[in-house]
Amino acid sequence: MVSLLRTIRNARRVGLREWWRQLNYIGDAKSGKYIGSDQFGNRYFENRNGEEEVPGRHRWVDFAQHDFNATQVPPEWHSWIHHIRKEPPTNDSVVQNLSPPWKAPYIENLTGTRGAYKSYNTVVPKINAWDPKVKARA
């Protein structure tokens, strides 16, 4: 019954359209404070109301893409969601001043997609297919 009341309460807070989208995408109706977004367009939320959320599940990400996976969450937001860092990257001065030495932007893992890395094979095959040689008849 508590779950039903929580679902109805969150539907009233976020509106029917957002509530229906959340049920289809994340399987739960959540309402919370908007914290920030990343370069992929993902939005991050937090609900500090302890009586409504299961402990440890009060921070969540709303993915921008329909086909999403966990590698679309950058490391700085991952550390905030999993309580490694207390402050979100938008408020954490350490994360804002941190830049990787190679200056490469973060990209998601593309394994299993068309953009996956495929190495170039330079090794001569050990087994060659049989190619029959046919001599002309006299």
Rank of each mutant, 00 (worst) to 15 (best):
D67L: 01
N69K: 00
I107D: 08
P88Q: 11
V124C: 13
V61S: 03
T71W: 04
W130K: 08
I81Q: 07
D28L: 08
I26A: 05
R48V: 11
N24H: 08
T122Q: 06
L110P: 01
R9K: 12
D67Q: 02
Q39K: 15
E53A: 07
A136H: 10
T90A: 13
D131L: 12
K103P: 00
L23P: 00
H83Q: 06
Q96K: 05
E18G: 04
Q22T: 02
S3F: 08
A64S: 14
E53S: 10
R12T: 15
N121P: 03
V123C: 08
R13C: 04
D67I: 02
A136N: 11
T113L: 04
G41T: 08
T113R: 00
H58E: 14
A129W: 11
P132M: 04
A104G: 01
W20E: 14
R13T: 06
I8S: 13
Y117P: 02
E46I: 03
E87L: 05
T122K: 06
N97A: 09
S3D: 09
Y34W: 14
G50V: 02
V95P: 00
I8Y: 13
R6C: 11
L23G: 06
V134P: 00
I8V: 12
P105D: 07
I26R: 10
P89G: 10
V123K: 09
W130I: 15
P55V: 08
A29I: 00
V14I: 15
L98H: 06
Y117F: 14
E87A: 06
W102E: 03
N47Y: 06
A70I: 12
